[in-house]
Amino acid sequence: MTDPTSPGSASPATPSPADSLGAPKTYKLFVGGAFIRSESGRVAAVHDTNGSVIARVAEASRKDLRDAVTAARGAQPGWAGATPYLRGQILYRVAEMLDGRSTQLAAELEACGASRQAAIDEVTESIDCWVWWAGWADKITQVLGGVNSVAGPFLNVSTPEPTGVVGLCTAAERPLAALSSVLAPALCVGNTAVVVAPLDSALAPLTFGEVLATSDLPKGVANLLVGSHTDLGPWLADHDDVDALDISGVSADLAEDLLARSAGNLKRVAATNGRRSPQTAGEFLDLKTVWHPARL
């Protein structure tokens, strides 16, 4: 951002100006560490406020979602088995990579309707979010776990463990901050994730895939899809191999449907809204309690 103080200037830095290549960029999905077009072949145009096409975006189908869940499941044991310290390091690396892309991301947010200042603030907030959760990676067990008081000669310990594969339906408003605020806590505690971001503000979330791809995150740990929550949400909720679902970004009507579907396969559902609290990570954790026949 060369001149962040002049909002509404005639020509905002659009994300993929057709000047150099002569054609708008096609943003691709991020699945299993690869940038893919949709299996369905669907591509949607993204328009700026004047109605001209500024980019094209691959629109995910249910099979892309299935593939993303398979990739996330495959990556889960390795990511959960990494030391919390290493996970923290990698999350911090995400923040660094995000910082390096801040100009591009702010321009993309602006192109999708944010004011220049709001776009800059959103990127800054997102970077801060990743740093915040990077710090929590090796501390969350101490806060959410513990030694329990029991009426008997036992040592009783509760320790949080990652839920597994989580689905995240993120909001269309402030898309980058919304995505960061639920993805970071989910990854922080050792889950792998499948994100479904809404189509109309998908540029920054998909560029965020390029950030993840360059930040030492193992393949398949985070997978980014864009598409309609109404189309993809039910497949995610019905999927037996998704262990938890965050529905912060969906409408009230759809939320009700997703809750009912998730009950069918005992999936945990939360609407954390990305609140900065250890409890947010707690929504993506299972507490395992062990009785041991000895006292401290």
Partner: peptide
Amino acid sequence: SGRYARPSD
């Protein structure tokens, strides 16, 4: 079932 199954089942 019309739903994706869990391989670990």
